[in-house]
Design a protein around this nucleic acid. Structure first.
Lengths: 191, 191
DNA sequence: GCGATGGTATATCGGTTCGATATATGACGC
DNA sequence: GCGTCATATATCGAACCGATATACCATCGC
């Protein structure tokens, strides 16, 4: 079994009612570093969950705004969530264009290799900052994280920092090496 | 633009001819820790690449065996690969049931939390070993890695080890904490 | 000699998901 | 008055995963 978008939506709804839009924001703010989900999967998921009776939908028609469809977890939904969490193996997959590009770096011009390193570095730093900000925000509001969530966040931070430190330390050498190779033997001459 | 299976197949074919089956093995042995691709995507990808003239297919009918369809990169294919590698942003996404389950660990019985930690730990250790074995094999055969590939593998190893070390150090405390919570307040009472 | 297991090899199919796009409205700056 | 941003829902094609089917051979236990 796999943790699909439907299950994650149920999970978000354990924290209270939410619209599809709210859930998307949750995904971006809380899950973004280990899960992505777009409107294209969230809205159909909610529709289907409602059909299965795992959530109920209440339409909030507010003046001068598009209708808000607010979803809430049902008892059946809660049970389904718990059962699925029980049965799901803890997989962990990476889909990385960055690693793939490094794998074929020898086919690329040196400048590009340096850019890849820099771009990855700023991406990682942005992610780390986002998580740190989230921690600070939660700390200030004192709406405590569950122990599992604290572990999760700290593990992610620890892992990301190690990732960043390695790139920071060894990235420049790789860029220089690529430079040295290209100066004598041009692999790619632009478009 | 995204690095899709088609592009990765072109990349594998820069190292020489290969069948779909060979390419799958390459994916498993070399890309497995940052990319997954199944037969269900590789075979259609090769068919389409052949239709576009980016690879050529030679059918090797060997006695008492299913035919082997051996694919080779064309000049157009090589150019397409380089252009795509040039244009692809270095994204890096994680899809982790493990992190997700940690996020909802407070809904799970304590035993399950401990099992998740253990299972993740042995998964990570297996991955680390596989990479180390691959490095040893390549070192013995002296078919050197490109600098980018060496960087890639060492970055992955460094990151995975940090990930493992954190879990090893702090996992047991989380499992104990879950235990303490469950003893007074039972969240889930089995199926 | 025979079934089980596992490796080689290709292929398809359903269901899920990504990413882009469409539509509509209000707020806010300038 | 105009662009841009946030709120809000929705759809659609393309891509992809994972399971499954098919077929043959080698090896090994029994």
């Amino acid at each position: 079994m796999t943790l699909d978008v439907k299950t994650l939506c149920l999970g978000v709804l354990t924290q209270g009612e939410a619209s599809g839009y709210d859930i998307k924001k949750q995904f971006e703010q809380v899950f973004s570093y280990f899960y992505v989900a777009s409107f294209g999967s969230i809205y159909p998921a909610l529709t289907q969950l409602a059909r299965e009776g795992l959530v109920v939908c209440r339409e909030e028609s507010q003046p001068n705004r598009p209708d808000r469809k607010v979803y809430a977890l049902t008892e059946a939904g809660r049970e389904r969530l718990l059962a699925t969490l029980q049965a799901t193996p803890p997989r962990h997959r990476i889909r990385s264009e960055f690693y793939a590009l490094l794998h074929f770096a020898h086919l690329l011009p040196a400048r590009r290799v340096g850019e890849l390193i820099d771009e990855r570095l700023s991406d990682v730093n942005r992610t780390i900052e986002e998580i740190e900000n989230m921690l600070a925000r939660l700390g200030a509001e004192d709406c405590g994280l569950e122990p599992g969530q604290r572990f999760e966040v700290e593990l992610a931070l620890h892992t990301l920092r190690a990732h960043r430190d390695f790139i920071q330390k060894n990235g420049p050498a790789l860029a220089r090496e690529a430079q040295a190779n290209t100066s004598s033997d041009l692999q790619y001459s632009g478009t």
